[in-house]
Simulated assay, not measured.
Amino acid sequence: MSTHSIRLDAVTLVRGNQHVFEGLTLSLQEARIGLIGDNGAGKSSLFRLISGLDQPQHGRVTVHGLDTQADRKQLSKHVGLMFQNPDDQIIFPTVAEELAFSLTARGETRQAARQQARDFLARRGLEAWAARAVGELSQGQRQQVCLLALQISEPATLLLDEPFASLDLLSQARLAAQLEDGGHQIVVSTHLLEHVYDFERVLWLDQGKVRADGPGREVCEAYAENVRERVALERDRRA
């Protein structure tokens, strides 16, 4: 098995009385992977399994050679998860402090981490952001800060859960450009299909199962057509 792969082997995840996944097997090795599907299809749950926040009742999840249960403490060095709401992720009052925290968590001294954070922002033309109060930033800018805080610690994989939600078109474009900055493997869950059309691989999840798996445009178009058919059927039933 490649040390740069994510594998789920016969994974079953039960939450309360709900079987979220049952016997799910996946291998995720591509550089750009999209996850699409209705709310409740299992996209966020898949991210929680890969990042070690949830553990399967059966089966095994392996991330870059690490077992998510036995090696859970090491996972944060290899996988970064960005939540849907940036306010659930940001802890510190200024941008530089937020980025520096990602480095102190990996063993850097506070002084060295803050300097690295300022240098990191400067290389991206964002040196003026270092002292900015996070509370004064727009939704899109806070999303950018969350992504920067993950990127600075250089995990092999970034898991982005609905990163474009609630963003205007300009903020979406900026965030999409930011995703291209770095050599991370990126897995994006989104309802905005245009952001994963050009991805080499997209998975359509449907009630915890993989309904389709293939090139981005092909899978996105199949899902969009399915949605149109369901809406038409609902309309006909009401008529």
Rank of each mutant, 00 (worst) to 15 (best):
H4F: 07
S5R: 13
A10T: 10
T12P: 06
L13K: 03
N17R: 13
Q18D: 11
Q18N: 13
F21D: 01
T25G: 09
T25Y: 00
A31C: 05
R32I: 00
G34N: 09
L35W: 10
G37D: 11
G40L: 10
A41K: 09
G42K: 08
K43D: 01
S44D: 07
L49M: 08
D54R: 06
G59R: 05
V61T: 04
T62C: 01
D67P: 02
T68H: 04
Q74W: 11
H78G: 04
H78M: 11
M82N: 02
M82P: 01
P86K: 10
D87Y: 11
D88G: 04
P93W: 01
T94E: 00
A96G: 08
A96W: 03
E97I: 03
F101A: 08
A105Y: 10
R106A: 13
E108D: 13
Q111M: 07
A113Y: 09
R114Y: 10
R114L: 15
Q115M: 12
Q115K: 12
Q116K: 15
A117P: 08
A117W: 11
R118Y: 04
D119H: 12
D119F: 07
F120Y: 15
L121H: 03
A122Q: 14
L126D: 01
E127R: 13
E127P: 02
A128R: 13
L137C: 01
Q139G: 14
G140V: 11
R142H: 08
R142C: 03
Q143S: 10
L147I: 10
L148Y: 05
L148N: 00
I152C: 05
I152V: 13
P155E: 09
A156N: 09
T157D: 05
L159N: 02
L159W: 04
L160Y: 02
E162C: 01
E162I: 00
P163W: 04
F164I: 02
A165Q: 12
S166W: 13
D168G: 08
S171H: 14
S171F: 11
A173H: 14
A173K: 14
L175P: 09
A176F: 14
L179E: 07
L179Y: 06
E180V: 06
E180W: 07
D181S: 11
G183L: 10
H184E: 14
Q185S: 04
V187A: 03
V187G: 01
V188E: 11
V188A: 10
S189R: 06
T190N: 10
L192W: 08
L193R: 06
V196Y: 12
Y197H: 14
F199G: 02
R201C: 02
V202C: 12
L203A: 02
L205T: 04
K209I: 08
A212H: 15
G216S: 09
G216I: 09
A222L: 15
E225V: 05
R228K: 15
R228L: 14
A239Q: 13
A239Y: 09
